[in-house]
């Protein structure tokens, strides 16, 4: 992502809009920085990242917004699917991987993070594994492959996921409305030890 920082005035306006909802999470204007980025599959909506430095570690939440309504991403697929219908989502063969990346980095499983592995060398923890495990990961990895589905606007994506300490070979159906479902999944490798927490903390200005 290429995050763009909002000015203090624009950030204040965004916080006012979010604060209009009585159930909204409170963010202090003094301590909160807001960055945003475009998402190619949502023509009218952008992704906003709010980081409040009032606590240690910093507290962050992401929202999808058209500049008027701000929908928090809560770790489930529900808000993403809601925006897919509202926006509506516009998927092509060129941006479907970006969508999958976005989806899996914001929706968590009961056993933790789900990572779409585009290249084994891009796995953030690969260097921390012992050489034998690194080789197993590289050997087991199945590269991304996208094909059209049976229905117009549908894509079938073959790839590799990391979840619950395992590498999984997956075939995913991505419907034109952005709904995901597994066609097939097979265990490639188990017991990959995750040496570090994947939680991201943000430093001001990052």
């Amino acid at each position: 992502m290429v995050w763009k920082q909002l000015t203090k005035e624009n950030a204040s306006a965004v916080l006012d809009k979010i604060g209009n909802d009585p159930h909204a999470i409170v963010f202090s204007k003094e301590f909160t920085e807001i960055a945003w980025d475009e998402l190619s599959f949502y023509p009218r909506f952008d992704l906003y990242r709010l980081v409040n430095f009032a606590t240690m570690p910093s507290f962050s939440m992401e929202y999808i917004s058209d500049g008027k309504a701000f929908l928090p991403l809560d770790g489930t697929a529900n808000p993403i699917y809601a925006i897919n219908d509202e926006a509506p989502i516009s998927l092509t063969k060129n941006n479907v991987v970006e969508y999958l990346d976005f989806f899996f980095s914001r929706v968590r499983g009961s056993d933790g993070d789900i990572l779409l592995i585009k290249s084994p060398d891009d796995m953030p923890f690969l260097d921390s594994l012992d050489p034998a495990q690194q080789k197993s990961v590289r050997d087991s990895f199945k590269p991304l492959h996208i094909e059209d589905g049976n229905v117009p606007g549908q894509f079938i994506v073959h790839g590799t996921l990391f979840y619950s300490g395992c590498l999984i070979s997956a075939i995913l159906r991505v419907s034109s409305d952005g709904r995901l479902s597994f066609i097939e999944r097979d265990m490639l490798l188990r017991n990959i030890s995750f040496p570090q927490n994947t939680v991201s903390y943000y430093w001001m200005g990052e």
């Binding site: 489930t76 697929a77 529900n78 699917y81 929706v107 968590r108 499983g109 009961s110 056993d111 789900i114 979840y163 619950s164 395992c166 999984i168 709904r179 995901l180 479902s181 597994f182 097939e184 999944r185 097979d186 265990m187």
Partner: peptide, 23 residues
């Protein structure tokens, strides 16, 4: 899942479901 045993990733289906049931 090609394994004949229990699918260890069955909960992934729930995660992708349009109405993720909040526990």
């Amino acid at each position: 899942m090609s394994d004949t045993g229990k699918d260890p990733f069955a909960n992934l289906d729930e995660i992708l479901s349009p109405e993720t049931s909040v526990s």
